[in-house]
Design a binder for these strands. Structure first.
Ligand code: FES
Ligand code: FES
Lengths: 143, 143
DNA sequence: TCCTAAATATGATTTTTGTCATATTTTAAT
DNA sequence: ATTAAAATATGACAAAAATCATATTTAGGA
């Protein structure tokens, strides 16, 4: 479904959503530890997201990664698309190709509607919304 | 979700369910081509399944792979468990660990019920049932 | 201005997954 | 019995994913 890298990236961004602001940047080592991802690894992912303007960063002393208000309106799908590419989620459960709606595989009927919904939530809900749910204690960041 | 290997293996087994019998064995090269999987690769997977008695085989001239009646009562989950191991499907969408029901992640509520249902179908429905659906032309084997 | 703390760029290494090749064993048919 | 046709066992190789390392650039503070 999602690659490890995507999972890591999503956790990191949600962590930033909860803990950072324009004036409160967080450096990699303080991100990697609480979300339990190797520092050099998450650094690379965050750099990629920063380059694509999904998150913000500044270098030098007092620098670090953070989410601007604009960043808070991105979706988890934006992250996934950058890290995993756009095709991965569309693959048929039984083959490497994407769903063939004219010739659905034996599991299509079971899987397609829910996968479609999953994707929709992923692209409709903003980071900010997820962050609110976490703040309210309704859901939790893994690790 | 599923590894490529699992997808390949499932396709091969369903192909055997449709086209083989005790007295009509099929050799790898005649399996690999229609399901579009490299011959040496699917051979290895079939050998694994055969050793675990998910499918049947016999060697020598007129030999090949086939599904006995008993084999037809296995589930797709049996295949997945052998090829991918038992933990893969239980992983949380956002982390490497399995779902923590006390501390559900932000996507848990969306994903857990449907994944649970998916797994249930996978282990409740027999190969024979899937094979019937395909024969009826209601669903199709990919490729 | 210089020093230091941070991200960035780049790429090397390792692990896992996927793929291929081949010698061996078994079995049916002659 | 011999031969040939098949799976089996084993392991080599390749590609992709995950992980680690390091030199460079940027920016704040003394
Ligand atoms: S065709 Fe297989 S999941 Fe849609
Ligand atoms: S806790 Fe994340 S999917 Fe269940």
């Amino acid at each position: 479904m999602l690659s490890n890298s995507s999972k890591y990236a999503i956790k990191a961004v949600l962590f930033l959503a909860l803990n950072s602001k324009d004036n409160k940047k967080i450096m990699v080592k303080d991100i990697s530890e609480p979300i339990n991802v190797p520092q050099a690894y998450i650094a690379k992912l965050l750099q990629e997201l920063s380059k694509k303007n999904i998150i913000s960063s500044s270098r030098g002393p007092k620098g670090g990664f953070y989410l601007s208000n604009a960043n808070m309106d991105n979706s988890l799908m934006d992250i996934i698309n950058i890290i995993d590419g756009e095709k991965r989620l569309q693959a048929c459960v039984l083959s490497l190709e994407k769903c063939n709606l004219e010739k659905p595989c034996p599991l299509h009927e079971l899987v397609y509607p829910i996968k479609t919904k999953f994707i929709k939530v992923l692209q409709d809900r903003t980071i900010k919304e997820f962050s609110t749910l976490i703040k309210q204690g309704k859901v939790f960041l893994p690790f």
